[in-house]
């Protein structure tokens, strides 16, 4: 790297605006689980199973899905907090682990966690928490502390009040702003927001969301926004990725997916959304039961056990990813003219 003089300069754009900032291919993580008997193969939980997507420069990719669908594991795999079993990651044209080592990757990509209290060291002052990452990357401690004040101002906090406090002396919203400031301390290009606003009160959530939108514009950031809240994703994201049991089932521009969801699971998700319109309120459960166990997922399509339109083909073969045009893709036999799903014509 040629960044010795100013180690924390933001990493330069490499491939121009048309090259995706991050391309992920076949990302896979199987967690070993305790086997039930001493004999037989060691079982694994297929937490993330062959996930592929890309994030364009300057966009916000929303990731939605039930708990346990692999959203957070995907985020941790991207940050390399856990080692993937398989898959390739290319950051702005540089292969992660090849051209780009982990230390440099972590300067370009940062993460905000859901639990604002657990993600700050309770024994450090806010100033020290914010200064930690820059010091690791070679900035003198004094400079890093001075920089911390600027970071706090950037996220709308008064450094004079917050800088020398401890995390337990701040409110949840303030703490999450500090966490955002901490993620920005290394001047990253991509910020992964893992349920970053989910634990906040609605009013605070709105403020923090607006802050995120504002920061993205000012600092030319790219977001991967993980949430279980469909409304929030609709508000903030340009494209949405729907995950189910470790797989991507649908991916496309937010407007298209929200207006016309194609995968039966996406439709179920939207149907389960709370409505402000009393006429449209429903008490019937849209989906029955819990997602199947990722240790032994259903054959073929993983959603078939809960899918109202499941047919024989769904158990026999895993659905291919079908391109519906305009960057909208879906992994469902219904939309594959070659799959021979009985409902295919009527529905597609």
């Amino acid at each position: 790297m040629t960044t010795m003089a100013e180690p924390l300069a933001r990493a330069a754009d490499v491939g121009g605006p048309r090259q995706p900032l991050l391309e992920v291919e076949g990302l896979t993580k199987h967690f070993p689980v305790r086997r039930s008997s001493f004999f037989g193969p060691k079982p694994v939980a297929r937490a993330v199973d062959g996930v592929s997507f890309s994030i364009a420069k300057g966009e916000t990719l929303g990731v939605v899905g039930e708990s346990g669908c692999g959203k957070s594991t995907t985020a941790r795999l991207l940050m390399r907090l856990i080692e993937p079993d398989a898959g390739r990651m290319v950051f702005d044209g540089e292969l992660v682990g090849g051209d780009l080592d982990l230390r440099d990757l972590r300067r370009r990509m940062q993460m905000v966690f859901q639990d604002s209290y657990a993600s700050l060291n309770p024994r450090l002052t806010i100033a020290e928490s914010l200064a930690f990452a820059p010091t690791v990357h070679g900035i003198p401690h004094g400079e890093a502390i001075a920089e911390a004040a600027a970071l706090l101002e950037q996220v709308g906090l008064d450094p004079g009040i917050v800088l020398h406090r401890h995390p337990h002396q701040l409110s949840g919203g303030q703490r999450q702003r500090v966490n955002i400031a901490r993620a920005l301390a290394l001047h990253p290009r991509l910020v992964i927001l893992d349920e970053a606003v989910s634990a906040l009160d609605k009013s605070v959530e709105a403020q923090v969301l607006n802050l995120l939108v504002d920061l993205k514009e000012r600092l030319d950031l790219t977001y991967m926004f993980i949430s279980h809240d469909l409304n929030v994703v609709h508000y903030i994201a340009d494209r949405a990725m729907v995950m189910y049991l470790g797989k991507v089932v649908e991916l496309g521009p937010v407007d298209r997916i929200y207006a016309d969801p194609r995968h039966p699971y996406t439709r179920a998700l939207f149907a389960a959304r709370l409505s402000h319109d009393p006429e449209k309120r429903t008490t019937a459960a849209v989906l029955q039961g819990d997602p199947p166990n990722p240790i032994d997922p259903p054959s073929g399509c993983r959603f078939r056990t809960r899918c109202p339109l499941a047919a024989e083909i769904c158990a026999a073969r895993e659905p291919a990813v079908i391109d519906l045009g305009e960057g909208h893709t879906v992994a469902c036999h219904l939309h594959d003219p070659l799959a021979g799903h009985p409902e295919a014509r009527r529905d597609a």
Binding site: R103, F113, A118, S119, F132, A133, H137, A185
Partner: peptide, 13 residues
């Protein structure tokens, strides 16, 4: 297992 240790690792320490 707390997030701040993860965050520290994510910062490259």
């Amino acid at each position: 297992s707390l997030d701040f240790v993860e965050a520290a690792r994510a910062s490259g320490a």
